[in-house]
């Protein structure tokens, strides 16, 4: 079963700290959502996992070994991202055949099925494909490689809504057939959250949280009711945002809420409702919530 462990991982670009003391442990063939705003460090972290660069400090192990320049591990990690095909005159099918030689589990038949599903012309040159089709091609590499560690870095960029939906369907099907560790970075949280087993949120180069999806969404709630009652109830909790209309107040909070607290809220006539992952992501990474 795939596993990965990062301890105090840091990455500097000169004076700029792209990643600061990141630590996490991923265990099992699950789908991990890596969320973060632009510049949070998602691609930097993923490129270290894929051995595109080495961390400045800290350690990373994949399947128990350091991945950088480790042939055995690098073959097990596929990093799908939107590549630049402006100069690529190779035909779609030939490019796939070339890649297949370096990926031990590559399923060419499945790749051809995906090419048909995403309506990508077989014999066209890569540079002649639309941006959306090129993105779908990158997704195909990720899916058909069947690598134990598969990374999709904002792969949806350029894909239209129906293609994105097809991609999510294929991802789940493919995961069922060939279980692996999938890490998906995104800020299109609302349409992808149902895919995630666990969620990691990066913010300004730091790991803000790492939780199971169900636990995470259960921790975020909106407390609504009379302003004084709401204030009294949430005063010891981590408050994400507040809205007030007349004497009614709604406060979004994040944290564990005990059975007793639920009972107290009911007694005070407070309403407790869920927050979507998208909202949680927005409020947790808002300016001032660092």
């Amino acid at each position: 079963m795939a596993n990965m462990e990062a301890k105090n991982l840091s990455l500097n670009y000169g004076q700029h700290l792209a990643l600061q003391n990141i630590s996490f442990e991923l265990e099992g063939n699950k789908i991990y959502g890596l969320l973060g705003r632009n510049g949070a460090g998602k691609t930097s972290l993923l490129s270290i996992i894929a051995s595109f660069q080495k961390q400045s400090d800290g350690t990373l192990t994949i399947l128990g070994q350091a991945p950088f320049e480790n042939a055995e591990i690098m073959q097990q990690v596929v990093f799908a991202y939107n590549k630049n095909y402006k100069e690529e005159s190779e035909k779609v099918i030939n490019l796939l055949k070339g890649i297949a030689k370096y990926r031990p589990n590559f399923d060419m038949e499945y790749a051809e099925h995906l090419i048909a599903r995403f309506k990508i012309p077989h014999d066209k040159k890569m540079k002649q494909l639309s941006k959306g089709m090129q993105a779908a091609f990158d997704a195909i590499i990720g899916l058909a490689s069947n690598a134990p560690i598969t990374i999709f870095d904002e792969i949806y960029a350029g894909m239209d809504a129906p293609t994105r939906t097809s991609f999510y369907e294929e991802l789940l099907k493919s995961q069922e057939q060939f279980p692996r560790m999938i890490i998906m970075s995104t800020h299109l949280v609302s349409e992808m959250e149902y895919l995630f087993d666990e969620v990691l949120i990066l913010h300004t180069g730091k790991m803000l949280l790492h939780e199971e999806y169900d636990t995470l969404v259960s921790k975020g709630v909106t407390v609504t009711g009379r302003a004084e009652d709401v204030d009294a109830f949430v005063q010891s909790m981590r408050q994400l945002s507040t809205q007030q209309l007349g004497s009614t107040k709604a406060v979004r909070v994040y944290g564990d809420i005990s059975e007793q607290q639920y009972k107290d809220a009911a007694m005070r006539g407070l309403e407790i409702g869920p927050i979507t992952l998208q909202d949680l992501f927005i409020y947790l990474t808002e300016e001032g919530n660092d």
Binding site: F52, V77, Y102, R103
Partner: peptide, 16 residues
């Protein structure tokens, strides 16, 4: 330019 990125992105080490 072309080959280095191509091979590393396909899991080949820089040494290979």
């Amino acid at each position: 330019y072309g080959f280095l990125q191509y091979f590393v992105s396909n899991g080949v080490t820089r040494k290979h």
